[in-house]
Design a protein around this nucleic acid. Structure first.
Lengths: 223, 223
DNA sequence: ACCTGAACACCGTTCAAGT
DNA sequence: ACCTGAACACCGTTCAAGT
């Protein structure tokens, strides 16, 4: 009883169970269960049965860990085959992106927010550029259109991600209460539009924003 | 020397120097000097010469504090008078929003990212809706257009805010290096557009995205 | 009404020492 | 090559006790 079972150095038998991939998976488990805010080196280590400091052998600190999670998620996006129809192809990419971002809702802000310098971040960009170039768009304009499009997608999804938890689409009582607040705001146009502002159907709103942006792209490419 | 000068309870003379407003200002000073990541209750207390725990009398924890900062910034936006020209009026609002978001660059992510339930968050919304309604847009569609527009602005500014620190517009060596990386990515469209992807002029990109979105709005409102 | 001492249960990270 | 003990310098927050 007096001899401690605590060990020092690496485990005597078996290969080490730690790897970058395993660490990313463990982090995703923490995120899914308790949210990004609950991620800590200690919490991830706990999931793996390992000391927090061991993670530093595979990952560049907590920040590098969160980048790795975002890269993993974005890197596993399933992109559609282009059909040659500009509008349909861009829409399909937009939907694939939303699917990936929302696959782990608590991790979405990571995917949407982290500036990824890595290869994974370039994959969706390649897809959009390829479609635009195939439609005859010059490279320079394609880059501007790409950036405008991505901004709209990210802005939409970011709102969705932290609007939906509070804002249940079909929460009748919540809608009525928000509507009343908006009507009492003293802002005439807000009060006027209160019934519509009080509702939020995330999927429909995404569809609308994408459709609007694609209208503009199609128009600018001279149809 | 053996008697401590530490006090307990509130200061014996003068009114308390603590207030919600003073706390927000102090937080903004921390943010401007060292970034949002450096905000802590203790750091803000230090600026005010007060114990961190005193802040809890005026603010709902750290989260409430950051909300208060975002509200303060957005609440002091200067909105342009509408002229009756739909396109020009929406553009002017978009620029006022960018100015506010970038006034404290290190705090921008707060303004762009925090879901504000308060009155301050409604003020720019009122402005956009008023312009759209004046142009004859029905309330329901105005809300959809508003949301699509705001998504584009937020997505654009969010990228700008964390792209610009690394990405100096005129950093010739940096541009060349990024271009080389993109060309070596193995992604043909990315490689092809590398000279344009390697550059980023934030103001011009914002202008482009806003222009594209406004084209779509004008088209949808039937000119 | 407002501020603080004491206290609790956490953090990220470094580095030398182990195997 | 990889893991950990010891250690450092931090966190947010509660609550009772002071004035």
């Amino acid at each position: 009883m007096s001899t401690s079972t605590a060990r020092r150095g690496r485990p005597a038998k078996g290969e080490s169970r730690l790897s970058r991939e395993a660490i990313v998976q463990a982090t995703l488990r923490v995120i899914d269960a308790e949210g990004v805010a609950a991620v800590s080196m200690r919490a991830v280590g706990r999931v793996l049965g390992v000391d927090a400091k061991s993670l530093y052998n595979h990952v560049e600190g907590k920040d590098g860990l969160l980048d790795a999670v975002a890269e993993h998620l974005l890197g596993t996006i399933t992109l559609p085959e282009p059909t040659g129809d500009l509008r349909a192809d861009l829409r399909a990419i937009a939907h694939a992106f939303r699917e990936r971002a929302l696959a782990h809702p608590e991790a979405a802000s990571l995917v949407l927010t982290r500036q990824l310098g890595s290869f994974e971040g370039l994959v969706p960009i390649e897809a959009v550029l390829t479609v635009l170039r195939a439609a005859g768009c010059p490279a320079e304009e394609a880059v501007h259109l790409l950036r405008a499009l991505v901004a709209t997608l990210i802005g939409s999804l970011l709102r969705e991600v932290d609007a939906v938890p509070t804002y249940g689409t079909t929460d009748v009582a919540g809608i009525a209460q928000r509507q009343a607040t908006l009507e009492g705001s003293g802002l005439p146009s807000v009060a006027d539009a209160a019934p519509h502002l009080a509702r939020f159907d995330a999927a429909a709103e995404y569809e609308y924003a994408v459709g609007l942006a694609l209208d503009a792209v199609v128009a600018r490419l001279g149809r």
